[in-house]
Structures are given as C-alpha cells and as structure tokens.
C-alpha cells in the first residue's frame, strides 16, 4: 500500500466487533478488564506503527530527493529560535544546583565539590534533559500542529498528487534537523548552566572565579560532555519523530489537531525521560 501502514487507517474502516453475549451482572466485572485489555492492545499497536513510521522516515534519507529548504527551516526553527528558552533554563538550573549543593555540602565542609557537581549534573543530565523538554514543548507541538493541519485540510493528500512523497517531504528533513539541532542547543545549555553555577558561586558563595573555573575543568571529562550530546541527538530524534507522527496521523478537524499536539508533547516528554534512563544506564552505570 503506497500510503504506508500507519496512515489514518480509520477505526471506522474496521468492522465493529459484535459485543459478547453475557448475563447482565457479569458485564460490570468484565467491562473494566476488557477496557484494560483494549488499552494495552492499543498501546502495542501504536508503538508498532510508530516504529514503522520511524523506519520509513529514516529510509527516505538515502533515497533522493532530499528537501533542503524544509530541512534548513526546521533547523533554524529548532536550533536558533529555541536558543533563548534553552539558555535561560540552563542558566537558572546551574545556579540552583550551586545553591542546593552548597546547602548540603557545607555541612561536611566539601564546598569545593560544588563546581564539580554543577558541571557534571549540567553536562550529563540537566543540559540534555531540560533542553529536550523545552524543545519538546516548543517545537514538538509546533510540528504536530503544522503537519496535523496539513493532514486535516488535505494538504498531505495534495502533496501526493504533486509527485511528492509526504513522508520524504515533511518528516525526514525534520527528523534530521532535530538530530543535528539538539546537540548544538545542549552545547549552549552546558556553557550557560556552568555559567549559572559560576555566577552564584562567585557572587554568593565566596568562590574566587579562578578557583571555580579550574575546579570545573578538573572535575569534567570529555566523555561527560560527549555522552550528553549523544543523548541530545537521540532526544532531538524522538521529539521530531513524535511531533511528526502525531501530526501525520491526526484526524477530526481542529479538535483532532489540538489533541495530536498535546499527545505529541506528552509522549515526547515521557519517552525522552525513559530514553534518558536507558542511555544513562548504558553509558554511566558500569
């Protein structure tokens, strides 16, 4: 089927299943079980469709044409216009970590570890996760709203009639833009997060600038930063994927697009944190 397996393949295409004949009282017991079963099956089906969707979108990377204009505008939208949000988030979080760890560490007279803690928590976790969550809210929502609107106003169908594969045109460039833009944002978040810690430590906690900076570099390994960037690339992929997927499969007018947008942000945020755990386990646990 040319339109792919996940395509808004209406629930209404499927013949309704006749309800099971059971005595009245039994229904009250069975209904919640059935609902649970249905919800689980639905989850499994959706995950499968999402995986197929991702596979096809990625496969278009190596099948020309590649739509540079769409890619560049997505890159600018994610990488450039998210800068202020990500920068501010990182700056404040770095400052908070410095304050919080001072409160704890001063009891044991290990305040010197503050620079270390700020640098590690920012590069390993806070940078990628906070940037990811911010971009999920901003860009994931925008992507699913834009593509969802295109779906419900027949623009995606129109692409097909104009010799353009909608996945190749709409999804693949955005996925690539997400993968490339998020690491860049995380570099910025890392720098500003450390700077937030630096500002708090030097202005409120009695650190000298020199001491703070040298402590930062002493405690930080290249692998901390690199793993953070790898996480960011994965998060960028997830955010763009879920934004595109929910938009692409949305149905039912403006209301459907709204629901798709919410679903995209929620799903991207949860998946992002789940993958964060998995990647942390993979890279740092040993």
């Amino acid at each position: 089927m040319s339109s792919g397996p996940w395509r808004a393949r209406a629930a209404d295409n499927v013949a309704p299943v006749a309800p099971l004949r059971v005595p009245p009282g039994v229904n009250a017991v069975l209904d919640p079980v059935a609902a649970l079963g249905r919800a689980v099956l639905e989850r499994v089906r959706k995950s499968g469709m999402l995986a197929l969707f991702a596979l096809e979108a990625v496969s278009h990377l190596v099948r020309p044409p590649f739509y540079w204009r769409v890619f560049l505008s997505a890159l600018i939208e994610i990488g450039f216009f998210s800068l202020p949000v990500v920068a501010l988030t990182a700056l404040f979080s770095g400052g908070v970590i410095a304050l919080q760890s001072y409160a704890g560490f001063s009891q044991y007279h290990v305040q010197s570890a503050i620079a270390d803690v700020v640098a590690l928590s920012v590069t390993r976790e806070l940078g990628p996760v906070l940037a990811g969550l911010m971009v999920a809210g901003r860009v994931g929502a925008a992507m699913s709203a834009e593509i969802g609107t295109m779906r419900v106003t027949d623009q995606i169908d129109a692409l097909r009639t104009l010799s353009t594969h909608p996945m190749k045109y709409l999804v693949t460039p955005r996925l690539l833009a997400g993968v490339l833009a998020l690491p860049f944002l995380v570099v910025v978040a890392d720098i500003l997060g450390v700077m937030g810690g630096f500002i708090v430590a030097t202005s409120k906690l009695g650190f000298t600038p020199d001491a703070y900076i040298s402590a930062t570099f002493a405690g930080l390994a290249a692998s901390d930063v690199l793993v953070g960037l790898a996480k960011a690339a994965v998060f960028g992929f997830l955010i763009a994927l879920l934004g595109c997927y929910h938009g692409y499969t949305s149905r039912g007018g403006a209301e459907g697009v709204g629901a798709a947008t919410t679903a995209a942000v929620v799903a991207a945020s949860i998946l992002l944190l789940a993958f964060d755990y998995l990647l942390t386990d993979l890279f740092f646990a040993s």
Binding site: D157, A158, L159, L162, S163
Partner: peptide, 30 residues
C-alpha cells in the same frame, strides 16, 4: 498516480508556501 492532477474541494493549498510556489510545486517537484 503522478499522471493525475487534482483540484481539491477545499483548495488544499500549502499554507507554509507563497502562492507562486504552490502553483509551481509540481514543476519543482519533478
């Protein structure tokens, strides 16, 4: 399907592109 051109009932214009790019979309796509 590429042999078919379609005018959709509601127009279905690409609202992220200017009108001229809408009109020449098929030409540029090929």
């Amino acid at each position: 399907i590429e042999r078919i051109g379609m005018l959709f009932q509601n127009g279905a214009l690409f609202d992220s592109l200017p009108v001229w790019e809408n009109v020449s979309f098929g030409l540029l796509a090929k």
